[in-house]
Amino acid sequence: MKLKKLAAQLTAVALAGALALSLAGCDKLPGVDTMTTGASVAEDGRETGGYVVGEVGEKLTTQFFSFSVDSVERTDRCGDAAAGEGTTLVVAEITVKNTFGETIPMFSSDFVLYYGAGDEDYCFPVEAAGDGLMELEYELAKDEEITAKVAYEVPEDADSFSLLYLEVYEDDFVGNAYYVDFEV
């Protein structure tokens, strides 16, 4: 299950890259926790191809959960993760609440960080533990809410970011994209 979801996300991230580039410099959308822009409806009734853009502190609601990026910071160390030469860690504290109605599998890699305009200017969270870091894989029970940190290793000169969650269903259907833009 984890590998299938990760492979689907990698494919979906490539598709979302063009959308991320087209959103650069967009203003915040009103009602970000309920409004999806540009979505179409598939034959089975699921939305696809839409996006929501928010900012730090705002709650965004997906088909499976709501989330907010509560704070962000730049640091050299978080838990047992340390930035390498020429890089820094960007740490986002994220609150996630299951709104789906049943337990759902979650992964820290559900949240991808874009840090530039290039096709490969994104990264997944570092594999680290401690200091309140989000588990790599966990289950979120119905109505359960967690707050945890997610650390990303990025080039030290990067200063403008977009955290992305892309809806990917078990059958690999790609839904909508949810972005939180910030500078740090």
Rank of each mutant, 00 (worst) to 15 (best):
R74L: 10
G86I: 08
L29K: 11
R46W: 04
A83S: 13
G84C: 02
L140N: 11
S109L: 06
V32Q: 10
G86T: 04
E139I: 00
V41L: 04
E55P: 01
G79R: 02
E47W: 02
G84T: 03
G50P: 01
E102C: 06
E55F: 00
M106W: 03
L60P: 05
Y138G: 05
A24I: 12
D70Y: 05
L136D: 14
V41G: 02
E93Q: 13
T75C: 14
Y138Q: 09
T99D: 07
P105R: 12
E120Q: 12
V41I: 14
P30V: 12
D119H: 08
A129C: 03
V90W: 01
Y51V: 12
G84N: 08
T61N: 09
G79E: 08
V52N: 10
G84K: 10
T62Q: 09
G45P: 08
S68A: 15
T75M: 11
E135T: 02
L89H: 05
A141V: 01
P30F: 03
I104L: 11
K28H: 10
L113Y: 02
M134A: 15
G79T: 06
G49F: 09
G57E: 06
K97A: 09
V56S: 07
E93M: 04
G118P: 00
F64L: 12
E144A: 15
A129P: 00
Y114M: 05
F107C: 01
A82T: 15
L113H: 07
M35V: 13
V52Q: 15
V91I: 07
K59H: 09
Y122I: 06
